[in-house]
Simulated scan of single mutants.
Amino acid sequence: MDADRRMTSLDSVPDDTTFLVTLRRLDTGEEREAVLVRVADGEVRGWLNYCRHLLDVRLDKGSGAPMRDGELVCANHGAYFEADSGYCTFGPCEGATLEAVDVTVDDGAVYLTDDDYAFVTTGSLDDGGPASSSNVEF
């Protein structure tokens, strides 16, 4: 695997919350946040860090997104997203799906394999991040 595409070690991705990374779209240069989530059998899924109800609301605001019974929870809207498929099972965007970012696990590390993105850094876009100005948005 290409060292430039290595995002983190598998051990760094927690079982009960998310791991935040910053990526850059290769076609526009726009930086976006993504979350890494552990799923069954030591696999990891990558999702853009934006709720499908209101796209400016981040799931992980810098300290890990809440998870419940294998689903990511949008703390702002109460929406639930399956960690393995990104499908919203409950909430105002029920039926929508998180935007996937292709990743793979190889030899104890998580690599970006999505040809649309380049890995920038672990963590948020900046210290403040593009967080919503309100704690509750519907």
Rank of each mutant, 00 (worst) to 15 (best):
L26I: 12
S134V: 09
D106P: 09
V57D: 13
R24N: 02
G62S: 04
A3D: 12
D69N: 14
V73K: 12
D115Y: 03
D60K: 07
G129Y: 08
C88P: 06
V105A: 08
Y111C: 03
D56I: 09
L72E: 08
P130Y: 03
R58D: 11
R24W: 00
D2Q: 11
G46R: 00
V105G: 10
G108W: 10
F19I: 05
L48Y: 00
R6V: 07
G108V: 05
A109C: 13
A65N: 11
R5Y: 10
R24K: 14
D107F: 08
A65E: 08
A118W: 02
A3Q: 14
G129N: 09
D116M: 04
Y87M: 08
K61D: 14
V101N: 02
L72N: 07
A40R: 13
E33Y: 06
Y87P: 04
R68W: 09
R38V: 02
V73R: 13
G62V: 00
S133L: 12
M1K: 14
C51T: 05
S132C: 15
A40V: 11
D27S: 15
L112V: 01
A131R: 14
C88T: 03
P92Q: 11
A75C: 10
E99M: 04
D107K: 15
E31Y: 04
L20Y: 01
L72C: 08
D114H: 02
Y117A: 02
F138M: 12
V57F: 04
L112N: 02
G64F: 00
T121H: 13
R25D: 10
E82W: 07
D115W: 03
C93L: 07
P14H: 12
D56K: 11
R5V: 03
N49R: 09
P92S: 08
S12M: 12
S63V: 10
Y80V: 02
V21L: 01
T89I: 02
A83I: 00
A75K: 09
A75N: 12
G123P: 03
D16N: 14
D69A: 13
D56R: 08
E82I: 06
D60I: 01
A100G: 11
H77G: 13
A3S: 14
T122S: 11
H77K: 08
A109M: 05
G123R: 00
V110L: 05
E71Y: 02
D16P: 08
F19D: 04
G29H: 09
D69P: 04
F138D: 15
L59C: 06
Y50F: 12
N49S: 10
E43D: 15
R24M: 04
L20R: 07
V110G: 07
D107G: 12
D41G: 11
G46P: 00
H53I: 02
L48T: 05
V103K: 07
S63N: 15
G70A: 06
R58V: 07
L55P: 10
V35P: 05
D56V: 13
M1V: 13
